[in-house]
Computed example of a mutant assay.
Amino acid sequence: MEKKFPLPPFNLETALLKVQQGEDAWNSQDPHRVAQVYTPDTEWRNRDQFINGREEVVLFLTEKWKKEQDYKLKKELWAFTDNRIAVRFEYEFHDESGDWFRAYGNENWEFNADGLMQRRFASINNVPIEAKDRKFV
């Protein structure tokens, strides 16, 4: 059986670690690496998309990072309890035309007993920015 430490129930130290692990995985821009922290039947809502299972996660992230180039993400723990964590985040990227954006959002995460994320619900908004205004260089 797969386990992704730390396992729930979370305390402040383990919740912070889980958030940092998530940030590191997403910043790798490796869809297969990211997908391994989710249950095989994971359930997502990402903006207006509904994604189910690791295979769909890989497809979604592969397409995402083709469009969102030079992606850099920062996550911040917002709250936690038992097997749930809430984060706020922001990330920057540019599109194929070279236009830069900063995305702001919130995610709610729910983990199974083995530390795999079984549900992820994300609300995200993009704001156009100038390259000179980037925070994550």
Results as ranks from 00 to 15, higher is better:
122 A>E: 14
134 R>F: 00
46 N>D: 12
17 L>T: 11
50 F>T: 13
83 N>W: 13
122 A>S: 13
8 P>C: 00
12 L>F: 01
11 N>H: 06
84 R>T: 15
81 T>V: 15
123 S>H: 14
64 K>A: 11
4 K>I: 01
97 S>C: 02
1 M>Y: 03
30 D>Y: 02
61 L>N: 15
133 D>A: 07
105 G>H: 10
58 V>G: 12
4 K>G: 00
117 M>T: 13
82 D>S: 10
100 W>M: 02
120 R>Q: 08
24 D>S: 13
93 F>T: 15
19 V>K: 04
63 E>W: 03
11 N>F: 06
92 E>R: 04
41 D>Q: 06
59 L>A: 11
10 F>W: 05
128 P>G: 01
64 K>C: 07
117 M>Q: 05
91 Y>Q: 12
103 A>L: 02
34 V>Y: 12
95 D>Y: 04
80 F>R: 08
63 E>G: 11
45 R>Y: 07
41 D>C: 09
124 I>E: 14
130 E>R: 14
8 P>W: 02
124 I>Y: 09
81 T>A: 15
77 L>P: 11
114 D>C: 03
85 I>S: 08
8 P>F: 00
98 G>Q: 04
39 T>P: 03
1 M>N: 04
104 Y>D: 04
21 Q>E: 11
40 P>I: 12
124 I>S: 08
9 P>W: 01
75 K>P: 06
56 E>D: 07
34 V>H: 14
97 S>R: 09
52 N>F: 12
128 P>R: 13
119 R>K: 14
17 L>A: 08
60 F>S: 07
2 E>V: 00
1 M>K: 06
77 L>R: 12
79 A>Q: 14
104 Y>W: 13
115 G>M: 00
28 S>P: 01
10 F>Y: 14
71 Y>N: 12
96 E>S: 09
106 N>M: 15
60 F>W: 05
132 K>C: 06
127 V>L: 05
65 W>G: 04
64 K>T: 14
14 T>W: 00
128 P>A: 06
61 L>P: 05
21 Q>K: 10
63 E>N: 10
53 G>M: 05
135 K>T: 07
77 L>E: 12
47 R>S: 08
65 W>R: 08
64 K>L: 08
57 V>M: 09
79 A>C: 12
131 A>K: 10
13 E>R: 07
77 L>Q: 11
22 G>T: 03
132 K>L: 06
19 V>H: 02
127 V>F: 06
10 F>A: 02
109 W>T: 06
77 L>T: 10
